[in-house]
Nucleic acid binder design. Structure first.
Lengths: 104, 104
DNA sequence: TGGTTATTTGGCTAAATAACCAAATACTTG
DNA sequence: CAAGTATTTGGTTATTTAGCCAAATAACCA
């Protein structure tokens, strides 16, 4: 493995890591419906606002989310529509409802 | 959030977590080409075989990989073809080569 | 300006993770 | 059966991560 390959893998792994936590995944799923502000997401996740804020800035850093300030609130949304496909693939591996045939 | 939703999110997050490490992602990418045994993957990753083995069993546990023993070797392969789409989406967020427009 | 609300940042602690080494297990072959 | 090879498991340590609280920052309004 070349060092360039290693770097590419690390960057891509960082994007995945940004979704690899129950609260962060829940946030990503919620944002598929449209943008939300931090306080809405705090209610959704049920953690301290500072905790949620750290999750969000980590996801933004990874390129998964973008944010946009309007008045007192900061609204977050998904950076990419393709995340929908991403999550649909996920459901083939870890279905929400049990199936006899878990995957393709 | 109901507890059922929390559980579903955790399961899905576990699948993502199984790919959220540079070595594990590299393994998943390599297995897109076809199955490999542990010692091949150890050479690819460049870590101790026990480390690679632990990564692999974690990925299998999450449902990302399946394994199959033939003779002395244990061959691993991806559990699902859809991982290709998964990784392509990833490249829109974290491209291998820099682009002026990082995402959709 | 001073108060109020939304969000982020810094600091700390507890828990989870990744790595290595050594030992155990499983299979094959002489 | 003994020796050799491939893989896993157990144990330990260092690092990273997640969470909370308290304090700082930013924007709005009276």
């Amino acid at each position: 493995m070349t060092s360039a390959q290693k770097t590419a893998s690390s960057k891509r792994a960082a994007v995945i890591k940004a979704l690899a936590h129950p609260s962060r995944l829940l946030i990503a799923e919620a944002l598929m419906e449209g943008e939300m502000c931090v306080c809405d997401l705090k209610d959704l996740v049920g953690a301290d606002m500072s905790t949620v804020s750290k999750h969000l800035s980590m996801m933004r850093q990874a390129g998964v989310l973008v944010s946009d300030k309007r008045g007192l609130n900061i609204y977050y949304r998904l950076a990419c529509d393709c995340l929908g496909d991403f999550l649909r693939c996920l459901d083939q591996l870890a279905p929400k409802k049990a199936t006899t045939k878990p995957c393709c």
